[in-house]
Design a protein around this nucleic acid. Structure first.
Lengths: 180, 180
DNA sequence: GAATTTAGTTAGATAATCTAATTGAATTAC
DNA sequence: GTAATTCAATTAGATTATCTAACTAAATTC
């Protein structure tokens, strides 16, 4: 039966062991084995975290980066001049990329562009009422999904993890020169 | 001066506080506040981890997903029949997407395709010597970059974090039905 | 007032994914 | 033992998120 031969040729899950084996053969002298191992796990976990969040958001027809931008606009709503340049700067992407994101969000009426009166080269970007409605719709499940990432940790572990998480995120933000 | 007005319109980094504020207003009843907060931090950290790794790998002209595929092939090198279908299954993507990845890797001579003699619909995919060379080149820095993610943690924190990391990755893999 | 700088967009590219259709080979069902 | 079906891989065509380079219009500098 073809179905079974398909199962037959399935690639077995090897687990982390062969990766560690490979690591021992390919690691530079100065690298700490345990740290590299944990870093690899962090990378895998990170991939998986993004997948979980993507999956959650896809039900709302939006992606993480776009939600991110909408939240940015919401949290800077009172600022009178939020420009594509400032957004690009903040998100660490090019202005041209911001133009594309804004085109997409504008088409769905979740943001609006208005030309600045002071300097007519500049554009003020703001979230619309519909955009706020979307966010109000998305966030309850979004927070629940975020929380669910920690479901398997007990109270003690959560407490320990919190400190570590803040530290790790702080140092990586410094390293990349980013931050929200 | 224009330069200064650009600085002027820069969006300030707000930190996590306004996100938590927003969370309080938009969270569903049953969601645990602290967990949601930590989940959000995990998401941010995950984004940053992928950025760090991407940056590291870009020096070698390869991306995480392609390295991932090459490692998969390396670790299954002795298997006589590694097909695009099996790869797709394992990576959780479509066969068509695997075709595209393989085209790219084959063009650079890092993998080779050979038709199966037994079933001529099937293709055996293997990593080439050049592919192994690439990996040997990439891995030393790759491991160092992985390890560097934990640079700021002290010995005690690392020990605690390891247990948590294994647990978190285990549960998220189960949830997504993936794994290596 | 001419040259330069700046903001935003457009054009065109690449990567990583998808779905739907196609091709060729193997299997199944009369 | 052929006809219909299934299966593996690819192709065609689309989307999202990014990039660089070129362009346009406005503001600033000299």
């Amino acid at each position: 039966m073809a179905k079974e031969s398909t199962v037959d040729q399935q690639l077995p899950k090897l687990g982390i062991a062969p990766y560690l084996q490979l690591m021992n053969n390919t690691m530079a002298k100065g690298t700490d084995r345990k740290s590299a191992q944990m870093g690899l796990l962090m990378l895998w976990l990170s991939d998986n975290v993004l997948d979980v969040i993507d999956e959650d958001l896809s039900a709302f027809g939006i992606t993480e980066s776009k939600l991110d931008l909408l939240l940015l606009l919401l949290l800077h709503e009172e600022r009178e001049l939020v420009t594509p340049s400032a957004i690009a700067d903040r998100l660490g992407i090019r202005r041209a990329s911001v133009t594309a994101l804004l085109d997409w969000l504008e088409k769905r009426k979740w943001i609006a562009r208005e030309q600045s009166a002071k300097d007519r080269r500049m554009i003020h970007v703001r979230i619309t009422e519909e955009g706020v409605d979307l966010i109000d719709n998305v966030l309850p499940t979004f927070w629940a999904t975020c929380a669910s990432l920690l479901d398997d940790l007990d109270a003690e572990e959560r407490k320990l993890f919190e400190k570590i998480l803040v530290k790790l995120n702080g140092s990586i933000e410094k390293r990349l020169g980013v931050g929200r």
